[in-house]
């Protein structure tokens, strides 16, 4: 567990702890000034937070992947024009304006990174996890992606090529993981439960029906 920003029982050293509190205070001061000057509205801030806490997250992407597994026509559309295919399920907008879906195969595994900042397909995956924005991931994904996969407990079969997509522009990439064996005839809802966030970034694989990574 991570310490809360100003709770007294965090796991951090005193130094880290006080820095976190400083940040919390600085953000509070910043927000107060912005509200007082009328640049931002408190209700709008709450609406933004509510959106990303409850409505926009990786279950959206899981629905896209499950449909692509179950519906070959949708999958073809997703590969041809991902923005339109994803919009047909009701997802789109900020940080997903220009989507591209890349498909894992037994021959090639895809991995997405943004080495320069934190570009990430928000409408389908939500806000990026801390590790995606970390120096450790951004530095190593392009030079040692197999080492990064090992950090996630993923070992690709020998001979699988690794393809890394560095999101340096406004194109946002969604990885279409391989459908686990033994899921023939499953509903889209059941399939979606096998789709992890990490499998749509490429740092993971879809879960096998038994619950472990395929």
């Amino acid at each position: 567990m991570h310490a809360s920003d100003d709770g007294p029982h965090g796991h951090h050293h005193e130094h880290d702890h006080s820095e976190l509190s400083d940040t919390a205070l600085r953000v509070r001061a910043l927000e107060s000034v912005l509200v007082e000057k009328g640049y931002v509205e408190p209700d709008a801030l709450d609406a933004i937070i509510e959106t990303y806490e409850t409505r926009i997250g990786p279950r959206n992407g899981a629905r896209v992947v499950a449909k692509a597994w179950a519906d070959p026509a949708f999958r073809d559309g997703l590969r041809r024009d991902a923005t339109a295919a994803i919009a047909s399920l009701g997802f789109g907008g900020r940080q997903g304006e220009h989507m591209v879906a890349v498909e894992n195969t037994p021959e090639e595994h895809n991995l997405v990174v943004c080495t320069l900042c934190s570009c990430y397909p928000w409408p389908v995956l939500g806000l990026p996890p801390v590790w995606y924005k970390s120096a450790a991931y951004r530095s190593r994904a392009v030079i040692d992606p197999r080492g990064v996969l090992a950090d996630f407990g993923v070992t690709l079969p020998e001979g699988t090529r690794l393809r890394v997509w560095d999101s340096t522009a406004e194109i946002r990439y969604l990885v279409l993981p391989m459908r686990p064996a033994g899921t023939e005839g499953w509903s889209e809802e059941a399939l979606a439960d096998l789709v992890t966030r990490d499998s749509m970034i490429g740092t993971g694989l879809a879960r096998a029906p038994g619950g472990v990574a395929a």
């Binding site: 809360s4 801030l45 709450d46 996890p129 190593r140 950090d151 966030r197 990490d198 740092t203």
Partner: peptide
Amino acid sequence: VTPEPEELRFHAEWEKRALAI
């Protein structure tokens, strides 16, 4: 790289405010 569960959205209240502003 340190993985984290996908249910985890924020690590502190101030991160929500930072996102929103």
